[in-house]
């Protein structure tokens, strides 16, 4: 996994609440057996008309936001299906950070596994950033995971919380499986205990 580094980028406003993973990546694109190439299908049913042409007023189709790397989103972003195709599609589009008041649990976890950072902020701060994002491509935000801050285009700084272990993994681009395998003696000890305590398993 690539390391998550401090960056500044264009933030696109998506104020709709309850944006679900069916919206982020509709099911017809789940038939792939690869992780890559889904960016073009991100938000497909909101982004394209039935004939494949672009819906002009969809935010990511607007010239100002085509290079967006941050989404400022409404409450409960990523609810619904567990499909990791959702972060894969966003990441492939170029999105590295999503800011919202809340995220659905599985989507939230899936982001970290793909080098993406979901940031939870209080409603009034998300609202300020939403307004900032509305300004378009000249308004770039800065994301600093090390310092745990979002800096808006006018220099306002918002601090966010992040799980220390997840932060460590993101900053260093660490592979979870490798880390867990270092603890294989604990897993083996647990399995021995299990054989004794719950042999029917």
């Amino acid at each position: 996994m690539r390391k998550f580094e401090k960056f500044s980028g264009i933030a696109a406003p998506m104020p709709l609440v309850n944006i679900d993973t069916d919206m982020i990546i509709p099911k017809q694109f789940l038939k792939t057996i690869k992780r890559s190439g889904l960016g073009v299908n991100a938000f497909a049913e909101m982004r394209y008309k039935a004939d494949g042409s672009e819906v002009e007023d969809f935010v990511l189709n607007k010239p100002a936001y085509r290079e967006a790397s941050i989404l400022i989103a409404g409450d409960n972003f990523g609810c619904g299906s567990s499909r990791e195709h959702a972060p894969w599609a966003l990441s492939d589009f170029g999105i590295k950070v999503v800011v919202s008041t809340s995220f659905a649990d599985i989507f939230f976890n899936n982001c970290f596994k793909n080098g993406m950072l979901p940031i939870v902020l209080p409603a009034e701060q998300v609202e300020i950033l939403m307004d900032d994002a509305e300004k378009g491509s000249n308004a770039r935000m800065e994301i600093d995971l090390e310092a745990q801050t979002v800096t808006s285009s006018d220099g306002s700084i918002f601090s966010f919380e992040v799980d220390p272990f997840k932060k460590h993994c993101l900053l260093n681009g660490l592979d979870d499986i490798g880390l867990t395998m270092e603890k294989s003696s604990s897993i083996e000890a647990y399995e021995k205990k299990l054989e004794f305590e719950r042999p029917w398993l």
Binding site: S82, E84, P87, N109, N110, D176
Partner: peptide, 10 residues
């Protein structure tokens, strides 16, 4: 509970 594909691999 449900998990993502990276967790399936894990």
């Amino acid at each position: 509970h449900g998990i993502g594909t990276s967790e399936v691999e894990h």
